[in-house]
Write a protein that binds this DNA or RNA. Structure first.
Lengths: 211, 211
DNA sequence: GAAGCTAAGTTAACACTGTTCACATGATGC
DNA sequence: GCATCATGTGAACAGTGTTAACTTAGCTTC
């Protein structure tokens, strides 16, 4: 509160994450270079270490900002009138984000912590860390659970564990998008017809989960 | 045929891809090092270039071998008796492969060409390359389309474009597995209960697509 | 105002990486 | 016997992440 400008000149810090984001979106994970980011901001490579613990932390910060953009897409769906419309619009926004920011989407949902960081802890370690407690904080999941819950309350989805239904729906959406983005879904054709397939698939999903 | 041992001593070549696979599975994409592979085989870094065009080609070779392992899982499903059993067993084998070789699964289905290679051509370029023609050769997709087709012939799936149905099913399976592997599915709990959710989900899917 | 402390930056170095080049060497074919 | 060619080598280059020692500007506190 009254503390006098704790992070007064974090200007370069934010310029670093902005540049990191640029570099990242231009070249992907493989081409990401801490030195290149430093170069663009006009600071020495070592200088970056005054603001971040290292390359990984810098990438994390860039990712966090990408996540903020994603949230801005989802939140627009809250403007819709009925629970059903909010659910459908959420799915739409989810798709829009993926198609308009494919690299961000891949980075957030298709890359694992192992891909990004160099440490390679085995799966159990990650699962143990994330299970239940930490997972409840995943904003994407919470958002979707909320949509499911209000659809249940409105009677257009059968009662049940909202988390379980949310998993089913999210998996389906993510699966379609993920396969599309990774190029395994060639025959679907252009973007418009993929979007159509996506919407058709969402409707079918909701219908099959309703009474 | 009669050509005298064109690749007589490709022994080191195959040892290179074996070592590459080891290194890759141990450390993931980020930690993969051509020099490390060369070191393990007992060859100089430059020597690798006698057998591969560079790091990317080496990774490609390792990936191709991983894909062969994947095929060996799928092909086991063909032993089942009825079309329905073959379909369900295929889904089971798909899951088994993913859970027993999570790194391979991620490498094959969750990483994009951009993640692996350093070049970062925009999405349209990739889509153009893979659309329709090349896609028909994707063994995974062909396999699944076959399963769908014979289920249609057996009357347990409604008639329609098998490719379209295959996309729906595959997306669903992949979505579940992908979210599980990337740690976004914490609350589902242990592996056994995830497998149960997976199977339940497959049944539901088939039922909703049947007459 | 002088002294001291801290945040933010520097340069230099280390141990890596992928890649290329000029060179050795051992087997093969004529 | 001699040339060819695949297969290997070592040295070098440019680039990477990271660390250490050093400067410097700004603020606090006597």
């Amino acid at each position: 509160m009254g503390r006098p400008a704790q992070h007064a000149s974090d200007d370069t810090r934010s310029r670093l994450v902005a540049a990191a984001r640029d570099v990242f979106l231009e070249g992907g994970v493989a081409n990401f270079s801490l030195r290149e980011v430093a170069r663009r901001v006009g600071v020495s490579a070592a200088g970056v270490y005054r603001h971040f613990d290292g390359k990984d932390a810098l990438v994390d910060a860039a990712c966090a900002q990408g996540f903020a953009v994603f949230s801005s897409y989802l939140v627009r769906a809250l403007g819709a009138g009925t629970p059903r419309e909010r659910m459908l619009t959420s799915a739409d926004q989810y798709l829009r984000f993926a198609l308009e920011n494919p690299r961000d989407y891949r980075f957030i949902f298709m890359s694992t912590a192992e891909d990004i960081h160099r440490s390679a802890p085995s799966l159990p370690a990650r699962a143990g860390r994330k299970d239940l407690a930490a997972m409840a904080e995943d904003p994407t999941f919470r958002f979707l659970v909320d949509r499911v819950r209000e659809c249940m309350a409105a009677g257009m989805l059968d009662e049940g564990l909202p988390e379980k239904i949310a998993v089913l729906i999210w998996s389906h959406l993510h699966g379609l998008i993920s396969l599309r983005l990774s190029g395994h879904l060639g025959p679907v054709g252009d973007e418009a017809s993929f979007a159509a397939l996506y919407r058709e698939s969402v409707e079918r999903m909701l219908q099959s989960l309703g009474s």
